[in-house]
């Protein structure tokens, strides 16, 4: 399958008089058509900032994309003018956010919010847009779609709002959907509904999804490929089966071990000691070194590159350098 999105060495920095914070520090991601790629990491790892950089919605002033390429469908999005970029957002690439409570406009009806997108991007007439909006709401599982157009967001529950967000995001048949923690604020039974629905999207419309999450359970259920981030950098990339069968980076291993299991033996949880380093207190060597159980001298002085492994996997760890024995 052809590559749809190819992010190369993306760098987003926050510059102030006192310091420069490298929120995104050389990220590579590639997504094929119809593929779901999960971007995983803890809070502060830079995963949301990566997605905002792809959409060029980095908070400004302060944040700035200082380098790299975002190749989407054969064009570098970073070279587009703001006016051209506006035609990409919501049309070719759309986004859903974590907070279904705050990402809908409370003073506009659901209908107004969905038709706005269609009228702007697809230049539809009011009537056409209305019909399409009803179709979309039915698609995301609302039986009384007609009446819903006149409802205001406060009348809907969290799960319903998130489905409306998805309907809006899907309104222009985007090639890529960026979902930033789409189910984090929802209950498990509602989360199951939304995940089921997102899986259907990729099958039915070949929409590629960049799923940003901290929940490895969700990753395991929907993703094809996983990119693990730590402190602004990619530390491991792998297809989903191999990542869960045999995590390579000590950080990925730590993450997997710290999840309490819902089946199998109950053991004491293995936590990762310490905290994610603050952006202005980055360690000199490997960024995970202060928390790593397998740290050795070399890790403290220099930061490893991403080292290619079998089956296209990559891992940023000196344990996997040529000549070193695997763990």
């Amino acid at each position: 399958m052809s590559v749809l999105l190819d992010v190369k060495n993306l760098q987003t920095h926050f510059i102030s008089k006192k310091q420069t914070v490298k929120a995104v520090d050389g990220i590579d991601i590639s997504i094929k058509k119809g593929e779901t790629v999960a971007l995983v990491g803890e809070s502060g790892s830079g995963k949301s900032m990566t997605s905002l950089s792809i959409m060029q919605l980095v908070p400004s002033p302060g944040g700035e994309i200082v380098g790299g390429e975002v190749n989407f469908n054969g064009r570098d999005l970073l070279k587009l003018k703001e006016k051209e970029m506006r035609k990409v957002r919501g049309n070719e690439i759309s986004m859903i956010f974590q907070e279904p409570m705050t990402s809908l406009n409370p003073v506009l009806t659901i209908g107004e919010q969905i038709t706005e997108v269609l009228r702007y991007h697809k230049k539809m007439s009011k009537e056409q847009a209305r019909r399409r909006a009803v179709e979309l709401l039915k698609l995301v599982g609302f039986s009384r779609a007609e009446e819903m157009l006149k409802d205001y967001p406060h009348r809907l529950s969290g799960g319903m709002r998130q489905r409306v967000m998805i309907a809006m995001a899907m309104s222009c048949d985007p090639k890529l959907l960026i979902a930033d923690e789409p189910t984090t604020a929802l209950d498990v039974t509602i989360q199951a509904q939304i995940l089921e629905f997102m899986k259907n999207l990729t099958h039915q419309f070949e929409t590629a999804i960049l799923l940003i999450t901290h929940d490895l359970g969700v990753v395991s259920e929907v993703a094809d490929h996983v990119v693990v981030m730590y402190a602004g950098q990619v530390v491991e990339t792998s297809d989903v089966e191999r990542l869960f069968d045999e995590p390579k980076h000590p950080y990925t291993q730590g993450l997997l071990n710290s999840i309490p299991a819902i089946e199998g033996e109950i053991e004491r949880l293995q936590s990762i000691k310490g905290n994610v380093p603050l952006p202005d207190e980055m360690p000199a060597g490997c960024r995970f070194a202060p928390r790593c159980p397998k740290v050795f001298d070399k890790c403290l002085t220099s930061n490893p590159e991403l080292i290619p492994q079998e089956q296209g996997r990559k891992v940023r760890c000196y344990l996997y350098e040529e000549g070193e024995d695997a763990v």
Partner: peptide
């Protein structure tokens, strides 16, 4: 409904997806 990180050799469980809201 709880998403589970897959484990080697463990079969994926059957899902009961509830309809509707609370």
């Amino acid at each position: 409904a709880v998403p589970v990180p897959r484990q080697k050799g463990v079969k994926t469980r059957e899902k009961v997806v509830l309809k509707g809201d609370l």
